Simulated scan of single mutants.
Amino acid sequence: MALTANQIFVNLPVKDLKKSMDFYSKIGFEFNLQFTDDNAACLVISEHIYAMLLVEPFFQTFTKKEIADATRTTEAILAISAESRDMVDEIVDKALNAGGQPSNEPQDHGFMYTRSFQDVDGHLWEVMYMDMSAVQQQQ
């Protein structure tokens, strides 16, 4: 039997929780305030996907490893899907206007379109749209 999970919680270290919350709010994300306090904020990505933004000292209590400086090293690339190419552009443009930095050049593979940005802490985000009908035709 394959392992399945009902939800995913990605934990990200942040330097300034308020600044990070302001950034994601400007993109259009919301927070679950039930799981938000001075140390952490629960960023709602979808009904089953969340990013826990944890201030670095609090994040450090969960690991014995050094926290990666996401402005200098790549720890992970967080990829999220969008409903359309226009929505990809809208999300990334909002992120850039809110203080994010561009990451890679847009990628257009016909059936898949992606753009990426770095958040205020340097975490890499990729926003993608995939035309599933085009993918099914290629098979």
Score class of each variant (00 low, 15 high):
Met1Glu: 14
Ala2Met: 12
Leu3Glu: 14
Thr4Arg: 15
Asn6Tyr: 04
Ile8Leu: 13
Asn11Asp: 11
Lys19Tyr: 01
Ser20Val: 01
Asp22Leu: 11
Asp22His: 10
Phe23Gln: 11
Phe23Asn: 10
Phe29Cys: 05
Asn32Ala: 07
Asn32Phe: 01
Thr36Ala: 09
Asp38Phe: 04
Ala40Phe: 08
Cys42Ile: 01
Cys42Trp: 04
Cys42Asp: 05
Leu43Met: 09
Phe58Asn: 06
Gln60Cys: 02
Phe62Gly: 13
Lys64Leu: 02
Lys64Trp: 01
Asp69His: 12
Asp69Trp: 08
Arg72Ile: 04
Thr73Arg: 14
Ile77Ser: 03
Ile77Leu: 08
Ile91His: 05
Val92Gln: 11
Val92Asn: 10
Val92His: 08
Lys94Thr: 08
Asn97Leu: 12
Gln101Asn: 13
Ser103Ile: 05
Pro106Tyr: 11
Asp108Asn: 13
Phe111Ala: 12
Met112Glu: 10
Met112Pro: 01
Ser116Lys: 09
Ser116Phe: 05
Phe117Asn: 07
Asp119Cys: 02
His123Met: 05
Leu124Ile: 15
Val127Glu: 05
Val127Pro: 01
Tyr129Glu: 08
Met130Leu: 10
Met130Gln: 12
Met132Leu: 13
Gln136Pro: 00
Gln136Asn: 07
Gln137Asn: 11
Gln137Ile: 01
Gln137Ser: 12
